[in-house]
Design a protein around this nucleic acid. Structure first.
Lengths: 212, 212
DNA sequence: TATGGACTTCTACATTTGTAGAAGGAGAGA
DNA sequence: TCTCTCCTTCTACAAATGTAGAAGTCCATA
């Protein structure tokens, strides 16, 4: 079974996506990147669409695996109501983010490229399952912490944490924040995330319930 | 002077970028989108690189104009230390974000596409000035509010707010959050942003309450 | 050993794309 | 009126790309 061939090509495609963007994702570029004979990618993924869909599926799987593995703090009887637990929890998320923006940089950049692509290609929306999974975790955690509107706060929290990731990978933070993969980065992220956790989990002061 | 022609082409390029992504950004696609004769874009921007650079410059200008105009709350003698001021301030930012994700959707999607592109094309990094400008504003505001580390908190705050924007435009929020352009969306954003402002200004609510 | 089938590699080819330059046109100044 | 110059439009063309199918290779089973 050529399942390893599929995996190699899909991983190469993710790398190409990160290095050259959607525009650089061609059958031949993937062949080259995978160090396989020209034509291989074209044989395994007859159309470019098929290739992209495989990438999206792979990314969703990898993300889900990471999230499943990372939810240990809540499982381990840790409660987000205690100060030290919040900090530990924040450090855990920070470590994951730091890994995503250093070791797994390609993967995350590829995911952003696919997210943007999904904007005008609805059939790729499966990639949004990542967002939904992390949101569910976040909501459950905030509910356990006694947040008043865990559903809403969970969504906000995930969006903000993702914002920290994007900022450091592609935004202004990429030139000003501590370098990914360093303890300084993890420390900085931990501070930000702890602040977020306390804010969204805590009994925040009264807040306007209507917009303009 | 064909300066209006340049503008029309650049705007068309932004629309193409939003609708078809970096991959769809070709000279001919811009011609079509601008309803101008084929070859026009190629005549005005001899290379594709020149076209993208024009887009990046335009985006940076538009963003800066928006930010300059939007900073009125701080200028108007508003202080972020008072509850009602925080809510008003949050509503102001929420209104801007809501406009960005509805009326100005194309622009923002194009910006994200360019940000991703800048990841592997350093000469496009000028687009990061947007991030720097908003961060400076944010830092100044938090400093005025008495935050302990306004520089750091300002960076975190901007990253989070941008995360809310990205989430609703391209992330999971695009299918679950209130629709852009509605009062419900502005209200939801206001709640999130007010929470963030309070948290990063150092007025994070104590989290002492335990259990339910 | 021969054969069938799957996997792999190579080649072909119509389109699309980037880029350059030629052709066309309109207005200012001699 | 002629001409020069600038802007506009059209055309050409090499390179890259998506996609299909042919040719080649390997291995298990009859």
């Amino acid at each position: 079974m050529p399942t390893d061939r599929f995996a190699a090509l899909t991983d190469a495609a993710i790398a190409v996506l990160a290095e050259r963007g959607m525009r650089g994702l061609t059958h031949r570029a993937v062949d080259t990147r995978a160090a396989l004979p020209q034509g291989t990618t074209s044989a395994y993924f007859r159309t470019r669409k098929a290739l992209i869909e495989a990438v999206v599926r792979r990314l969703a799987d990898l993300d889900r695996a990471d999230l499943d593995e990372a939810r240990l703090p809540t499982e381990a009887g840790m409660s987000v109501t205690a100060i030290e637990d919040i900090d530990a929890f924040a450090a855990g998320i920070a470590a994951l983010l730091d890994r995503w923006m250093s070791t797994e940089r390609d993967r995350v950049l590829a995911r952003y490229a696919c997210l943007l692509e999904a904007t005008h290609h609805p059939e790729l929306r499966t990639i949004l399952r990542y967002g939904e999974a992390s949101r569910a975790q976040s909501t459950a955690m905030l509910a356990a912490a006694g947040a008043r509107h865990p559903e809403q706060a969970g969504a906000h929290l995930v969006a903000c944490i993702d914002g920290l990731l994007f900022d450091r990978l592609a935004g202004a933070g990429s030139s000003s924040a501590p370098a990914p993969g360093t303890a300084a980065n993890r420390a900085d992220l931990t501070i930000a995330i702890a602040t977020l956790l306390r804010a969204f989990a805590g009994q925040r002061p009264e807040v306007a319930t209507s917009g303009s």
